[in-house]
């Protein structure tokens, strides 16, 4: 009898993203069901469920670590925000403020292509978000990307609350539009941070 091979990357992904638990028995069950004719989509959804359930269990048993990860993420993001404006000044060629003193830059430093400045700043922002995720996981490496997922959830919740407060205070009738546009940006931020976290996680050992 020829055995159907389930997607190998899925099991490795689970072990890499949630390394605190032993997944061999679960993967054996999924493999068994896959042999019995379950679809690849079913297999991948089960792996996704395992990542979510495993992450939740990890957070419940390591609450202090999770809180520390959230604080790490907040500090990293504050650093990113505070560095963004001076970096923009430097790239526009004007110079930068250091304390109360302005440092002008020489003419050969000036960014020559104004039209591409926006792209460069976007790239810096993207790299910054990836770095935030990378830093959180790097400092909590034993937990895979669980701690980055925690940070994403906390930030998403805080922003949602903030938006609701703003909408209530301003009497905005376009709350749904506001939430839609905010969600777009938020999802992109989450994906970038999770990508950064994935890069910082340890590869799963092959068996």
């Amino acid at each position: 009898m020829t055995l159907r091979q389930p997607p190998p990357f899925a099991g490795r992904l689970l072990k890499r993203l949630v390394p605190t638990q032993d997944h061999d028995v679960l993967l054996g069950d999924l493999s068994e069901e896959y042999q019995r004719g379950r679809s690849t989509a079913w297999y991948l959804l089960q792996i996704l469920a395992a990542i979510i359930v495993g992450s939740w269990r990890d957070v419940r048993t390591h609450r202090i670590t999770a809180a520390r990860a959230v604080i790490t993420g907040i500090l990293a993001q504050m650093l990113l925000l505070s560095a963004f404006s001076p970096l923009q000044n430097v790239l526009t060629g004007a110079g930068f403020m250091w304390g109360n003193k302005w440092f002008g830059l020489p003419w050969y430093w000036h960014w020559p292509y104004d039209s591409s400045l926006g792209i460069v700043m976007q790239a810096i922002w993207i790299a910054g978000e990836v770095m935030v995720g990378w830093l959180i996981v790097r400092l909590h490496r034993g937990h895979g990307v669980t701690m980055v997922l925690v940070y994403c959830c906390v930030i998403g919740a805080l922003r949602a609350v903030g938006l609701l407060q703003i909408a209530r205070a301003t009497g905005s009738p376009h709350l749904l539009t506001l939430l839609y546009w905010s969600a777009n940006g938020q999802i992109r931020e989450w994906l970038l941070m999770i990508a950064g976290g994935y890069l910082a996680s340890r590869p799963a050992k092959t068996t």
Binding site: V25, L26, D29, L30, A49, A50, V53
Partner: peptide, 24 residues
């Protein structure tokens, strides 16, 4: 074991079950 337990729950409740949550 995981597979038989999940199948029994699915047959009884008529809802899909995530094996990971059974193990949890």
């Amino acid at each position: 074991y995981g597979v038989t337990i999940a199948r029994e729950i699915e047959e009884t409740t008529r809802r899909p079950v995530a094996l990971a949550s059974v193990y949890a």
